[in-house]
């Protein structure tokens, strides 16, 4: 129920910027995750129990999308993906693991798996979008396995991620069509960095810096999906930016600070997104999509022209 005092709605846990978020965490002695949950409860649409149970369902659904993707052996409709997550997972447990180590090779496989499920018309949780849906699940599942934590504990990271995502969503956007890949994969990477940082005991300040460090390294990233499909380079961007999130979280936990505060990084995200040419915003008209190889996957649907009917008129029944 909304708090109703003398007819005025009093809201205590709402914020639009990271500066406001940090001030609220300080003054109420709350983690980013807890502040985010309280803010949502305060909005009056659902109880704490409902919100937590839904988030737990989402986390389990994310894990399902990882496991489902790891089973995929055939290529997708476009032929651009399928079977890669299996390959990386097999390598991680094979006789010759890379210097990266099995844990983080698995992290890559998990993120690829979500995108493979996605490409196969399977169920995923957009975090914050479908094209960037692999990063948070991969990072959280890797963290959970490494720390031997329960789903309930690990799921708290999604509230941290949502709290940071809110600042990006309000200050910029999540849409590749409006802001390029930096708005999708960049946002997801910042959200995952924040989540892991808080789960590993980072203070709200560490969390915000982890997000700032992750986000600033994705600025300018274009959305150039080959053939217009959410597969390449999307899948590998998920796989490799998951590692980037772990890096940003580790750096922030060490006490290193982002020179430019998170709110300013978010405004750069918006500025770069606005100035980015249209061809780099999910149109498949530039970047990797228009390389000689990329063009081989492009299909050109033709406008209807004089065929059939105009979309504003009811078609006449055929004689």
């Amino acid at each position: 129920m909304p708090l109703c005092l003398t007819g005025i709605l009093t809201m205590q846990y709402q914020y639009r910027t990271a500066a406001e978020l940090l001030e609220l965490c300080r003054s109420h002695s709350l983690s980013v995750a807890e502040l985010t949950v309280r803010g949502e409860v305060e909005n009056g649409m659902a109880s704490r129990e409902e919100i937590e149970s839904r988030m737990l369902t989402y986390y389990r659904s994310m894990k399902d999308s990882v496991h489902k993707g790891l089973q995929i052996t055939e290529r997708s409709r476009s032929g651009l993906s399928g079977g890669d997550s299996r390959r990386v997972l097999a390598h991680s447990s094979g006789p010759n693991p890379s210097a990266l180590g099995a844990t983080f090779e698995r992290c890559i496989a998990y993120a690829l798996a979500v995108l493979e499920t996605n490409a196969a018309f399977g169920r995923i949780v957009a975090t914050p979008t479908a094209g960037s849906a692999g990063i948070c699940p991969a990072c959280l599942l890797t963290w959970q396995e490494e720390r031997k934590a329960t789903d309930k504990v690990t799921m708290q990271g999604l509230f941290t991620a949502a709290g940071i995502g809110r600042v990006i969503g309000l200050g910029a956007c999540f849409s590749g069509a409006r802001g390029g890949c930096q708005a999708e994969v960049g946002s997801a990477s910042a959200m995952a960095a924040a989540a892991i940082c808080e789960l590993d005991g980072g203070s709200p300040e560490d969390v915000v810096h982890a997000a700032a460090l992750a986000l600033q390294n994705t600025l300018g990233l274009i959305c150039d999906p080959i053939g217009g499909y959410v597969e390449a380079p999307c899948m590998m961007r998920n796989g490799l930016f998951g590692l980037h999130s772990f890096g940003a979280a580790a750096v922030a936990l060490s006490g290193v600070r982002s020179i430019v505060p998170f709110d300013e990084v978010v405004s750069v995200l918006r500025e770069v997104g606005n100035k980015m040419p249209r061809i780099y915003k999910e149109t498949a008209e530039g970047g990797l999509a228009t390389t000689p190889t990329g063009l081989q996957f492009l299909r050109h649907p033709k406008p209807a022209g004089d065929r059939g009917f105009k979309a504003s008129q009811w078609p006449q029944p055929e004689a």
């Binding site: 949502e40 659904s61 949780v125 949502a162």
Partner: peptide, 21 residues
Amino acid sequence: MRIFEIIGPSMIGPSSSHTAG
């Protein structure tokens, strides 16, 4: 902006804007 606008929707792929939206 609410939590489940950021985390979610739970959806069938492949695109949040072109499929879920």
